[in-house]
Simulated assay, not measured.
Amino acid sequence: MDPPHQLQQHALRTAAYANGCLDREEFEREPGLEPVWCRFLHDLELVTLSSADLDRIEAVL
């Protein structure tokens, strides 16, 4: 498994995509985490995302 700082970076990339900061092509070229992993890893306190980001990730992806 990736070290926690790498997991955090992948989670932030997913949040950026969900928030419209990356287009689909950019995200597919260098993807983040699958949405279900964002919530799961956040619940395990391995990554930190805001509630708004988590909701947006689940709604968009």
Rank of each mutant, 00 (worst) to 15 (best):
Met1Ala: 13
Asp2Leu: 15
Asp2His: 13
Pro3Gly: 00
Pro3His: 07
Pro4Leu: 14
Pro4Gly: 02
His5Ser: 12
His5Gln: 12
Gln6Met: 14
Gln6Lys: 12
Gln6Cys: 08
Leu7Glu: 10
Gln8Tyr: 07
Gln8Asp: 07
His10Cys: 07
Ala11Gln: 08
Leu12Trp: 07
Leu12Asn: 13
Thr14Trp: 07
Ala15Leu: 07
Ala16Asn: 10
Ala16Tyr: 01
Ala16Lys: 10
Tyr17Glu: 04
Tyr17Lys: 10
Tyr17Ile: 03
Tyr17Thr: 03
Tyr17Gln: 03
Ala18Met: 06
Asn19Arg: 13
Asn19His: 11
Gly20Thr: 09
Cys21Ser: 12
Leu22Met: 07
Leu22Phe: 07
Leu22Gly: 10
Asp23Asn: 15
Glu25Cys: 00
Glu25Leu: 09
Glu26Ser: 11
Phe27Cys: 01
Phe27Asp: 01
Glu28Tyr: 12
Gly32Asp: 11
Glu34Val: 05
Glu34Lys: 14
Glu34Gln: 12
Glu34Ala: 15
Glu34Arg: 14
Pro35Glu: 05
Val36Gln: 11
Trp37Gln: 11
Cys38Met: 03
Cys38Trp: 03
His42Arg: 12
Glu45Met: 02
Glu45Ile: 00
Leu46Gly: 01
Leu46Asn: 01
Leu46Ala: 04
Leu49Val: 05
Ser50Met: 04
Ser51Thr: 14
Ser51Tyr: 00
Ala52Val: 14
Ala52Ser: 13
Ala52Cys: 02
Ala52Glu: 15
Asp53Pro: 04
Asp53Gly: 04
Leu54Thr: 04
Asp55Val: 06
Asp55Ala: 14
Ile57Lys: 03
Ile57Phe: 07
Ile57Tyr: 05
Ile57Val: 11
Glu58Asn: 08
Glu58Thr: 02
Ala59Asn: 10
Val60Gly: 02
Leu61Met: 15
Leu61Phe: 15
